[in-house]
Design a protein around this nucleic acid. Structure first.
Lengths: 185, 185, 185, 185
DNA sequence: ATTTAACCGAGACGGTACGTCCCGTCTTTAC
DNA sequence: GTAAAGACGGGACGTACCGTCTCGGTTAAAT
C-alpha cells in the first residue's frame, strides 16, 4: 500500500529536458555552467524547479554521469587484439567531444569544488578499467598491472588533456607491443 | 627625453604584496579566486589599485607566471644520469604544492577561460623541456623525441593530476632505462 | 431534492482545526500570516485543502469574524448603569488579546488590502453598537447620538490602538457622567 | 585633515529621487511597499544602491519622517482661540493625504513590524503635542491634561482612522468649549 | 620649488548571480 | 467527491561580487 499524493521527483519530461541541456552545457562551457540560473536560461524550466531537484551543480553532474551510457565491451579473450582494440576505442572517445569534454570539465570542476574529486577519480577509473580487464589474462596484478595500464594510457591523456593535441594513436599501439614483448621474455 | 611626473605602473611595494598574496590564493583556492575583490580582502590594497594594474584575473596569472622562478638546470651531458636526475626533480616538484597546485589551477582555469589555454600549454611545455634537453645527445628528434618524453612524463602527470596519488618515482626510473635500452639496440 | 455524493464544504473537524489555528496566527502575527502555507504549517492540513475552502486570507478572516462569539447583551433598561457596564465590558475586551489583537490586525490588513476596509468598519461598528443601544432610552439620534458614543469610546480606542497604553477606564466613566449630565439639563 | 576617498552616504540626487518616490508609495500603498524592490521599480535606482543605504523599509520610513516638514506653530497665548485654531489645523491635516496616509501606513506597519511601534508613538505624539502646548496656560498637567487632549482629539482620529469618514470638525469645536467650561467652574 | 602625471584609498552605482522562501495553480494518487 | 502530496512557474528577498566611476589626497620625477 502506497501513500497518496503525486509521486516525488522530477517529472520524466522535466528531467529529460534539463539533463540534455546540462550535457550540452557541460561540454561547451564546463562544469561551472551547471548552475540553476544557466540551466534555466537554456531550458526554460524555472529556477525553482531546478533548485528543487538538483540543489547544486554537483547533483547535476552526478545525474549526468549516472545516466551516461557505458561503452559495450567486446572482448575476444586474446590479450593482444583486445588491447589494440581498446586503444582504438579510447582514442576515438578522446577525439569526440563527449569524453574529452567530460574529462576536461570534471578535472576543472574538481579543482574548484573538492567534492567533485571523487567523481573525477571514478570517471578516470572507468576509462582505465577496460585496459585492466584486457590485461587480466597475462596474470599481471597490483602495481605491475597499474604500471602497464599507465604506460599505455597516460600519454594519450596527456595529449588530449594538457597539450590540446590529438591523441597519438600509433605510438600507443607500439607501446602495447612493447609492453607485451616485455612480458613474454 | 622622458616625461615629468611619477613613473607609471604599480609601486614596487604594492606589486610585491599583491603578487605574493595572489600566489597564495591561486594555490589554495584556484584561479577563480584571483579577483580584485579577493586580492583586496587578502592584502588591504584597495580594489581601485588592483583594477588599475591588473584589470582581469588573467593579468594576475600572467604576472605570476612571468615572475615564477625558473628551475636552474644542472646537466652533466651524460644522457642516463641527466634523465634520472630530471625524473627526481619533477617528482619533487609534483609533490610540492607550488607546481602541482599551479598545474591544477591552470588546467581548471583553461576550461573556464579559453585565453588561459595558451598559458597552460606553455607551462606544461616548461615542465617537459628539461627532458627534451637531456635527451638531445641521443640524436632523437621530432615525433620520436616527443614519444620518449611522453613515455617518461605522462604517467607521472596522470598520477598527480587525475588520480590524486603520489607520482610513481620508481616506475619512472625503470621507464627511463627501458627507453634508453630501446635506443641502444 | 438533494444531490448524491459527499456534501460540499470542509469537514467540521477540518474547519475547526483550521479556524482555531487561524485565530492564533492572526493574534500573534497579524492578518498577513493567514496564508495557506502558514495555516498548513500550523495545522498539518494540506495546502490543497485550505486553498479549496478558503482561497484567500480574506476568506479566512471573514470566516473568523463570522464565527467570533458575540457578546451576550445584558441590559437593564436604565441608561446610567447600562452605559457604565458597557464601558467596563469594552475596557476588558480591549485589555484582552482577542479584541485588541483583532482590531490591530484588521486595521493593518485594511491598509494592505482594500477589501478589508469594509470588514474593519463592520467590526468597529460592532464595538460601538452596544453604546448606541444603551443610549437609546435618552432619545438621542443621528449625529448627536454618534457624538455621544464617540466621546465615550474614542479615547479608549486611541489609548489601545495608537498609544499602546491601557484604556483609561476611570476617565471613560467620568465621560459617561458628563454626557448624561449634559442631557439632563 | 580628512580621509581620502569619496564621501560616504547616498549622493544628494539619489537620496532625493528615492525619498520622493518613497513618500508617494507610502501614501498610496502603505508602509509594506517601501521595499527595495518596489523603490527600484518606482525610481530606476538599482536595488543594490537602495539596499546599501536603506537596508530595511524601516530605514526608509525613518528617513522620511526625519525629512518631513514640521508644521509651524502660531500661538497667540490665549487658550480658547489657540485650541480652536489647532482643531482646525488637525482637521485639515487629517483631510489631506499626507497626514492621514502617513498615519494609516504607520499604524498598519507597526502591527506588521514591531520596531515601527516606537515610530508610531512619536508620530502620534507629534500630533497631540500642539494641544498640550495650547492647554498649558490653564495649569492642567499629568493625567488631567492627557484626558483633556484625548477628549478633543480622539474622536477626530477615530473618524479618520477607523470609520473612514471625515473628521467631525464642529463637534470638536464644541468639545473644546465644553472642556474649557469645565475648567472655569 | 613648482609642475605634473600618476599614484592610492574609499566608496557610490548599476548590474548579475545566487540560494531561499513563499505563493497560487495544477497533477497525480489514494480513500 | 474529499484529501494528501507534491511538481511547477513565478516572484520577492537579501547577499555577494563584479566592473566602472568619481572623489579626494599623496608622491615622485622633471623642470
Amino acid at each position: 500500500m502506497t501513500q497518496p499524493g503525486r509521486p516525488a521527483g522530477p517529472s520524466p519530461e522535466t528531467e529529460a529536458v534539463v539533463l540534455t541541456a546540462a550535457l550540452e552545457l557541460l561540454l561547451t562551457e564546463g562544469a561551472v555552467s551547471l548552475s540553476a540560473q544557466r540551466l534555466h536560461a537554456a531550458t526554460g524550466v524555472s529556477r525553482s524547479t531546478i533548485y528543487r531537484h538538483w540543489p547544486t551543480p554537483r547533483e547535476v553532474l552526478s545525474a549526468l554521469i549516472r545516466v551516461a551510457p557505458r561503452r559495450a565491451a567486446a572482448l575476444s579473450g586474446k590479450v593482444g587484439p583486445d588491447l589494440h582494440a581498446e586503444v582504438d576505442v579510447l582514442c576515438d572517445r578522446l577525439r569526440d567531444k563527449p569524453v574529452d569534454g567530460f574529462l576536461q570539465a570534471i578535472v576543472a570542476g574538481a579543482a574548484w569544488d573538492a567534492t567533485l574529486a571523487e567523481l573525477r577519480r571514478r570517471y578516470v577509473d572507468d576509462l582505465l578499467a577496460p585496459f585492466r580487464t584486457a590485461l587480466a589474462p597475462t596474470g599481471l596484478s597490483g602495481p605491475a598491472l597499474e604500471d602497464a595500464v599507465s604506460a599505455i594510457v597516460a600519454p594519450l591523456l596527456l595529449d588530449a588533456l594538457l597539450l590540446n593535441r590529438p591523441a597519438a594513436r600509433e605510438r600507443a599501439h607500439r607501446t602495447v607491443d612493447t609492453v607485451l614483448d616485455g612480458l613474454r621474455q
